[in-house]
Design a protein around this nucleic acid. Structure first.
Lengths: 196, 196
DNA sequence: TGATAAACTTTACACTGTCAAGATTCATTT
DNA sequence: AAATGAATCTTGACAGTGTAAAGTTTATCA
């Protein structure tokens, strides 16, 4: 992979190596020099691809967010998901289980991350935070399927009711020291219920 | 405050100075040497009071958590809080507004913090995470006031339903780039409703 | 082929956490 | 009151860090 002066794919290699370090030793253990060394490259080489350490971390966050988003998308195509209510429950469960399985990702993803979100359901906002966009579209679909006509502020409340339940249980599920009797999959669905 | 070789109250001064730096410049800007300098003390002096940087940060976290807990306790004594439902709503609102007013505290408090929590309502767990304890006791009070007799797993679900709504809206309220039309105080109450 | 840009290395510097050894003060006992 | 040991603080050192500057190698393209 490193047979010449030029690495060839250093940018991606740095992201990959960085993610590996974070997975194995936590975000604190991430240093530009270690990442560079892991790619067999000098300690200043990353600066050809990233302005600073923060930029590399942001790129890693983007990759994790992409994986996360893909997992959410897959969840609505699971067997048994035939209507929008089940889709919301299935995606909410996937959301929560993602962070239950990778507890450190919760803070890693949401810390210092500017997350653009619009709760207005009448327009399209392509640049909004993708996981949120998926939820927003599902709620919208739910309204359409069930011919629900609510005033804008009630729609906003319903949207945030669902998202906060999911976000909150994810936060709790990612905490060390929290032991619950009920399986997280069941808790997920129970906590989301009531909004719709 | 520093008129002799011995500082006299260095431990608290370090915590205070550290918190000030975090409030003004963020957690990343916190360094032991800066904290020491702010207290007019040599760079290695903190090691007489804290094992390492992490220990100081933990002490700062404890202080912020104590303030947070006090604010929650105050909220249930607000005028208009006459029953347990209103108490839950009032405390939930206070919880969320705390993080809305100090967005950076959300990640600061919950990141890498081992938070002990028991959802079993039949026993007392004094060492549990204090803000959670307050919630648990309010839910318990609600059951007693309304003579609700639910099986243990249903009680657990109700508890986590409430806490996840509060925790989730706090997480969302602490995000940069999230703009909502409804006031957060209203959202708070709306999101908590439905559990009880 | 030659010029220009991109990718990478080397060197350097300031800042960081932490350790070890020493200096000063406090507290307690005698 | 004097002495002794513990607590507190200083000084000096070291390895690891992010990052800037200047130089070297390779790729690209006219």
């Amino acid at each position: 992979m490193k047979d010449s002066y030029h690495h060839g794919n250093l940018r991606n290699a740095l992201i990959e190596a960085g993610l590996k370090i974070i997975n194995e030793s936590g975000e604190d253990a991430l240093s530009l020099r270690k990442v560079a060394a892991a790619c067999g490259v000098s300690h200043a080489a990353p600066y050809a691809h990233f302005a600073d350490k923060e930029s590399l971390i942001e790129a890693i966050k983007k990759k994790v967010t992409d994986d996360f988003t893909e997992e959410l998308e897959r969840s609505v195509h699971a067997p048994g998901v035939t209507n929008s209510v089940e889709a919301i429950l299935s995606m909410g469960e996937a959301y929560i289980m993602f962070f239950r399985n990778k507890p450190d990702y919760f803070n890693f993803l949401f810390n210092k991350q500017k997350i653009q979100v619009h709760t207005d359901m009448t327009k399209e906002y392509e640049d909004d935070y993708p996981p949120f966009l998926l939820f927003r579209n599902l709620i919208k679909k739910f309204f359409e399927e069930n011919h629900v006509e609510l005033p804008a502020d009630q729609q906003e409340i319903m949207l945030l009711k669902t998202w906060s339940a999911v976000q909150g249980l994810s936060s709790i599920a990612s905490m060390e020291g929290v032991e619950v009797k009920t399986p997280w999959e069941v808790l997920a669905r129970e906590c989301i219920k009531g909004g719709e």
